[in-house]
Design a protein around this nucleic acid. Structure first.
Lengths: 340, 340
DNA sequence: AAGTTTTTGAGGTACGCACCTCAAAATGAG
DNA sequence: CTCATTTTGAGGTGCGTACCTCAAAAACTT
C-alpha cells in the first residue's frame, strides 16, 4: 500500500495539519519541523496522490492561452487544438480559456496581462514575440503566483519561465539540409522569404539555414532574406522582382508561417516544377501544396502537441513536479506527401 | 457548476443508486430506466468527473505491456519508456508492469496470456506478431473484461482491438520517396534488407517502398528483399554477396529494426560515402550513424509516444471514453542529423 | 516570571464518485 | 388474488487530500 499523508504524519512524528502545512508550503512552521517532514517523505517514499489532491482542491486547474488577436493559418490551427483539448480535459477538472492580445501594441498587451489575476488563473501559456513590456508583465504574473510558459516563440530565459516549442536554428538547418539534398548537383540561387526579420524566430531559422548551406554546398547561393510583412500584394511583388532579377533561382525557402500566397506565386512564376520549395507549419493550404507537389517538404511543429505540452507543463508547475522531458520535447517534423 | 451524479439523479427522477447502476453498467435495471437516465445525461450535459471516479475506485488502473522475451535495440528503448512513464504516472494511480512472452512459440505465448486475470489487470498492451493463437488469446482476454491494444505490430482488426503504431505501407513509401530524392538523377540498383519477409510489417514496408519507386523512378531498380533473420553473420554475408553481384548499388534500405550491423557492413563495403542509406527506428546506434553520415535518413516511430498512447488508449477504454484522435496518431518521423 | 508571539495539534468538513446492504416497491406468473 | 421475482430507493462508508477553526503547547521577549 502506498503511504498516505496519515502515514507521513506518523513517520515524521507530527500531526496531519503540520504535514499539510509543509506539503502545501504554508507558513508558520519551524525549519526544523519542515526538515523532519521532508526527511520522512524520502524515508518512507511518500508521494502525493495527485488524483485525491485535485479532487480536494474543489476547483481543478484554470489555464489561459494568450495569443495574438490577428493571426495566420497556423494560429487558427493552434486555437482549434486548444478548444479540442479543453473539451477533452474537462473531465480531468482542467478549464482552459483563450485570451487575445494586441500583437502590435506591446503596452496594451502588457496591460491585458497585468489584469489576469491568480483568483482566475492558475497558469498562463503565452504566444507572443519577446518585448521588454511582455517580459515584465510575465515576471509580475509569476510574482502574483501564476505559472507561465511561453509557446512557439521563445521568451528570454528566466527563473520559472519555460518554453514549449522548437529550436528554430535547428529547424532552419533542417530546411537547409533538405534543400541541398533535394537540389543535388544543380547550381544556382536560393530565395529566402520571411514575414519580417525583426522576429527572433526568423533570424534563428535563417542562421541555421546558412550554417548548413554556406560551408557544405558552395554551388548554391542563398540570397538575402526578402520580407513580405504578411501582405499578399507585397509577397507577390517581391517574388516577381526576385525572379526577374535572378534568372537561375532553383530553390525557395519560406520561413514564415503564412506560406499560402508565396507558394501560389512561385507556382505561377516557375510552372515547370523544377523549383525546390520548402516551407514551415502544416496548415490546410501547405498540406494541399504537399499533395499536389507544389511544395517539396514541410518543416512542422505539431500544434496539438504544443498545446497539450503547455498544459502539462503548467500543471506540473502548479503541482510542483518535474515534467517528463521526453514527452515535452517538440519535434522538428519533416513532412512530405507520403508521411502526412 | 458542473452537474454531479446527484443532479443527474434528480433530473432523471431516480435515486443515486440507480444512477450508479446505469453509469457503471451494472445489471438489474429496466431498459426503460436506463433510457431515462441516458436521456437526462444528455439533457443536463452530465459528464462523469474522472478524478473523483478514479479516487473512489480505490485501485487506480493496472496495465501490462506484453513484449517479446528476445529483442533488439528498439525493444529495449520501448521498455525504457515503459518504466519511465510508469514511474511518472504512479501519482495518477496508474500501475504498469512488463510481461515477457516467448516470441518463437505462439502456444506458450498464448498460455501466458491466458493466465492474465481481470483481478490483476485492467488492460494489456501487446507487442507481438499476428498469429492465430495470439489472436484467440486476445479475444478471450477481452471476454474476461480486460481491455487490449496492439502496439507497433498490428493485429487483425476486431471489435475492441485497437492499434497504436504507424502505417507501415506509408512508412515504406516515405523511405522510397526519400531514397529517390536523395539519389537524384543517378541510376542503379537499390538493396532492400529485412530480418524476415514472414512478418506483416516488412511486407507492408516493401509494398509501400515499391509503390513509390516503381512508377515514378524507372532509372532505379530495387532488388528483391534480402533476409538477415537477425543474425549478424548472415547479414554480413548477404551484403557481401549482394555488393559483389551488383556492382552499381547506389542505395540501401534497411527495413528491420536492427540496423546496426547492416550499416557497419555497408560502410566497409562502400567506403566512398556515395551509398544512400535509409533505415528504421531511432536507437543509440542509428542515431550515431546519422551523426557521422553513414546513414542519410531514419524513419522513426516515437517509442515514448507509442507507450504513452497505449496507456491513454487503455485508460479511455476502461472509462468508456473516446480518445483524442490527434493525440494518438503515431507519426512517421523523418530524422536527419539536423533534427535529431 | 510574566507576557507575547510563534508553532503545533486535534478535529472537522468537503470534493464526487464507487461500492455495499437491506428493505420497499413494482412487476410478472400462476 | 397470492406469491415469487425483479427493480428501485435510502442510506451508509471510504478513497486521500485540501482547507478551515480553535485551543494548547512551545518558544521567545523583556
Amino acid at each position: 500500500m502506498r503511504p498516505t499523508t496519515k502515514d507521513l504524519a506518523k513517520a515524521a512524528g507530527v500531526s496531519l495539519a503540520t504535514v499539510d502545512r509543509v506539503l502545501n508550503g504554508r507558513s508558520g512552521v519551524r525549519q526544523k519541523t519542515v526538515d523532519a517532514v521532508n526527511e520522512a517523505i524520502t524515508r518512507i517514499g511518500f508521494e502525493r496522490n495527485q488524483v485525491a489532491a485535485t479532487l480536494a482542491r474543489q476547483r481543478g486547474y484554470r489555464f489561459g492561452f494568450v495569443v495574438p488577436r490577428s493571426g495566420d493559418e497556423f494560429l487558427s490551427v493552434i486555437i482549434k487544438h486548444i478548444s479540442e483539448f479543453a473539451q477533452a480535459s474537462r473531465a480531468e477538472m482542467i478549464q482552459t480559456k483563450v485570451i487575445r492580445i494586441d500583437d502590435h501594441d506591446p503596452h496594451r498587451a502588457a496591460r491585458t496581462l497585468s489584469r489576469l489575476s491568480a483568483d482566475e488563473y492558475d497558469g498562463i501559456a503565452i504566444m507572443a514575440p519577446e518585448t521588454p513590456q511582455i517580459r515584465d508583465a510575465l515576471y509580475r504574473m509569476r510574482e502574483r503566483g501564476i505559472q507561465t510558459v511561453a509557446i512557439v516563440s521563445n521568451q528570454q530565459e528566466e527563473d520559472g519561465q519555460s518554453f514549449v516549442g522548437i529550436d528554430n536554428v535547428a529547424a532552419g538547418a533542417t530546411a537547409g539540409r533538405l534543400m541541398a539534398r533535394f537540389l543535388g548537383n544543380r547550381s544556382g540561387d536560393i530565395l529566402v522569404l520571411a514575414e519580417t526579420m525583426q522576429s527572433r524566430d526568423s533570424l534563428e531559422r535563417r542562421l541555421g539555414f546558412d550554417r548548413v548551406l554556406s560551408p557544405d554546398y558552395p554551388h548554391f547561393h542563398a540570397l538575402p532574406t526578402l520580407e513580405t510583412h504578411g501582405y499578399p500584394d507585397r509577397t507577390k511583388l517581391v517574388l516577381e522582382n526576385a525572379f526577374a532579377a535572378h534568372p537561375d533561382i532553383i530553390g525557395l525557402y519560406i520561413m514564415g508561417s503564412e506560406a499560402r500566397v508565396a507558394i501560389e506565386c512561385a507556382r505561377d512564376l516557375k510552372p515547370d516544377g523544377k523549383l525546390i520549395t520548402i516551407a514551415h507549419e502544416r496548415t490546410p493550404s501547405t498540406e494541399q501544396a504537399l499533395r499536389d507537389d507544389t511544395l517539396d517538404a514541410l518543416i512542422n511543429q505539431d500544434p496539438g502537441h504544443i498545446v497539450r505540452s503547455a498544459i502539462r507543463t503548467l500543471r506540473a508547475k502548479c503541482e510542483n513536479r518535474e515534467t517528463l522531458a521526453s514527452q515535452e520535447r517538440i519535434r522538428i517534423e519533416i513532412l512530405i506527401s507520403e508521411n502526412l
